[in-house]
Nucleic acid binder design. Structure first.
Length: 358
DNA sequence: GTTATTTGACCGCC
DNA sequence: GGCGGTCAAATAAC
């Protein structure tokens, strides 16, 4: 069942990727004249390469594997838009409980999991300040682990139904390193607040002429490694430590499920919308009709300006490692939720107006 | 008094 | 039955 879903999903993704590449190529043509922005061209080229690389990767997988989904990160398989009609993730969670045919095991319920290693020097302990308000609800001694694991949930769980949780545990090997595992996605208003501040930072970068920062972010590499330089000089590096070449990290992708207009503005949906918005932020003119989001892209983008390293793990499909001690903020997926109501990223073409309005 | 944390108990999965 | 994750009452902090 899930295998079939996975294959269908791959087909859709493949189609989307190829379609996107085509659309991007068309857009690129409009930027070929000398007066056009070089950055825009660079970005479009990067995105085209991403789309085709991912499409090729999917094809490779189809040819080289038995179709098992274990090559697909859980983050992708379990992403909110990976199923059905792109229902909000909170609804997915409800479905998880109701539709046991799809998720029979509780362990499969989380859409994705991230691990964040916070190196010493951040001055942070178990109560990592990642921009969200967390409430500790439990602690357990884990078998084989030297240090207990703390369980945190979003403070707004009760008021806003935010289902995000995280687990914090000291690393056995290095007690100064905190391993933070995020689960679920923030659907609370914090997402918007963080998104706004992050978007402001990006806009200021653009408006102050720091084009290198933006350009860096727009240069994903085919080697599945890319570095971002945003905000206050924080460096974000993502890399795929998994040696399987058919894994795709990071990448832009666009599942075929479009965003339902009626969901726009729904706070529950903001974490999904943010993908589109963020994409729009870096490509204001990009407007694929099938453009939604995919967690791997999200995970790459959600770290903008924060100084995170992403690595892929067998369990979650993606992990983050905060490698920059200067970063006091680590971001789970969803940090950069952009609501269409809150931000008009078309201002990104006019950073000044964007900054003012935001 | 309110909010957050602690901690033992409980539940579901393997 | 063991383990990880969550619940909820008790406790602490503000």
């Amino acid at each position: 069942m899930e295998k079939r879903k996975s294959m269908e999903w791959e087909q859709k993704t493949l189609t989307s990727e190829l379609t996107q590449g085509k659309e991007l190529a068309k857009q690129l043509m409009n930027y070929l004249h000398p007066s056009a922005s070089q950055e825009k061209r660079d970005f479009l080229i990067s995105k085209i390469l991403f789309s085709y690389e991912k499409a090729l990767s999917l094809l490779k997988r189809d040819v080289g594997s038995d179709g098992e989904s274990n090559h697909i990160p859980n983050t992708m398989l379990e992403s909110p838009t990976s199923f059905g009609n792109g229902s909000p993730m909170s609804e997915i969670s409800d479905q998880d409980c109701k539709n046991k045919n799809v998720f029979k095991k509780r362990k499969t319920m989380p859409r994705w999991t991230e691990e964040v290693k916070v190196c010493s020097g951040t001055g942070l302990d178990g109560s990592l300040d990642d921009g969200y308000s967390w409430r500790k609800y439990g602690q357990k001694d884990i078998l084989g682990a030297t240090y207990p694991r703390g369980y945190y949930r979003c403070t707004h769980r009760g008021t806003q139904g935010c289902l995000a949780t995280k687990q914090v545990q000291k690393a056995d090997a290095d007690p100064s390193t905190m391993v933070v595992t995020y689960r679920g996605e923030h659907t609370c208003s914090q997402v918007l607040q963080l998104a706004r501040s992050s978007a402001l930072s990006l806009a200021k970068q653009a408006s102050t002429g720091n084009q290198n920062a933006t350009r860096e972010a727009e240069k994903p590499k085919a080697s599945q490694e890319m570095s971002f330089s945003f905000g206050a000089g924080l460096r974000v590096k993502t890399e795929d430590l998994d040696t399987r070449e058919d894994d795709i990290f990071p990448s832009f992708s666009f599942p075929s499920t479009p965003i339902e207009p009626e969901n726009v503005g729904d706070h529950i949906f903001c974490a999904t919308l943010m993908e589109n918005d963020l994409m729009d932020a870096y490509s204001p003119t990009f407007a694929s009709p099938a453009a939604t989001f995919e967690p791997d892209y999200l995970q790459a983008t959600s770290s903008f300006g924060l100084g995170l390293d992403y690595v892929q793990t067998s369990e979650s499909g993606l992990s983050e490692i905060i490698s920059a001690p200067t970063s006091v903020t680590n971001s789970p997926i969803g940090d950069f939720g952009f609501s269409l109501d809150d931000l008009d990223f078309h201002h990104f073409e006019n950073p000044e107006s964007f900054a003012y309005e935001s």
